[in-house]
Write a protein that binds this DNA or RNA. Structure first.
Lengths: 207, 207
DNA sequence: AATTGTGAACCTCTTCACAGCT
DNA sequence: AGCTGTGAAGAGGTTCACAATT
């Protein structure tokens, strides 16, 4: 399949959210122009993004909100639930366990890992914290498909390496470091300081 | 000044982090090739990014780690401390207060806001939680420059609107919604589900 | 010999603009 | 008449490749 750009995929996520909101508000049809307006982009961008995957609208009429949401769910793989694991039960990790948005989109925590003996064995939200050493066994048992890395930067690469060995192929990385992985493994980064630093840059510039 | 792309700015942040690590490990010089290698990009990209701001290296020798880090700190505005406010003291918000990476880069929480009467008046890490209604007054007193928005999506726009009124011009938004702001105000988004959905997409594709 | 700094080439993403459908 | 879908044009970002410098 033709390679679709990361920006298109992340915009599809925002369209998905937009459609969810519209549906909740009882809106049944929507134009590319309206979706664009809500998300501060152009309508051509919306149509082009969708066009990579099919034609979901009706000329002159726009898109049925429910149908389009369904189509995007299919594209993004949101028709199924995803089993995810949290590695590193610190502040960030704990916050993510409680983060409703994940559950709402079908991402379900099935396993927690840490290497701190104090934490291992404890339970959070009915989930036991396992020793990271047992990750392969537990990950298989719980059929983990995605791992969220919330360990200190210095441990992140090693943790990912071993999970790749266990067969995990998708990672959401919160550690402020670039993780190396084989070709067929995907890492997405969530680096909160980078965005703050961009704000710092813009404030500094505009003085 | 010439408009610099967002990607260049965010790469500068990663170079900055790379240099910090190298310095901690006693490395005194580094080539664009080494910086590139660490971050999985090309050396031309590193040199081009830097070239927008000056020439900081020596041909044949590379860059002095300490000097280059200093230069990037100047570019990104990291020579000063930034006063930041947290709006919305929920799970995510609490985790951010404890997030060392922010403090390390010079972003210091000076004010917390919430609208829940249960929370108002409480203290976290020596910081009092103020009523969001008092935001303007407190923001001025504490000289807040950047606000982190960690309130539910449905309240985010209103909260930002009022803070813009108070004169705040930079926002890091964790709410899964596109915020509208005037031209001279900057919003950066941290949308964790979007990255997870990208992983979902790639796993679905590669099946 | 090694490595930077950079114009030019290349590639990718976005926007335009309009034919085609409803 | 209104709005989609899309090829073509335009803008922007990345990589190449090499002269310049140490």
């Amino acid at each position: 399949m033709k390679k679709i750009s990361d920006s298109t995929i992340s915009r599809l996520s925002t369209y998905y959210r937009t459609l969810t909101n519209l549906i909740e508000n009882g809106v049944e049809t929507v134009s590319s122009d309206e979706i664009a307006e809500i998300n501060n982009i152009t309508s051509a961008q919306v149509r082009k993004d969708l066009s990579f995957f099919g034609s979901f609208g009706k000329r002159g009429l726009g898109y049925k909100t429910k149908d389009l949401r369904e189509e995007i769910a299919k594209i993004l793989g949101l028709k199924k639930k995803w089993n995810i694991a949290l590695v590193g039960v610190g502040n960030i990790g704990r916050a993510l366990i409680d983060y409703d948005e994940f559950k709402k989109q079908g991402f379900i925590f099935k396993a927690l890992f840490d290497k701190d003996p104090q934490k291992i064995g404890q339970e959070i939200k009915g989930l036991r914290i396992h020793d990271i050493e047992d990750a392969c066994y537990v990950a298989k048992e719980k059929e983990i498909e995605i791992a969220i890395i919330a360990v200190p930067a210095k441990n992140a690469q090693a943790v990912v390496d071993s999970l790749v060995q266990c067969g995990i192929r998708a990672f959401l990385n919160f550690a402020p470091i670039t993780i190396k992985v084989p070709e067929n493994v995907m890492v997405k980064n969530e680096n909160m300081s980078i965005e703050l630093e961009a704000l710092s840059y813009y404030l500094t510039q505009s003085k």
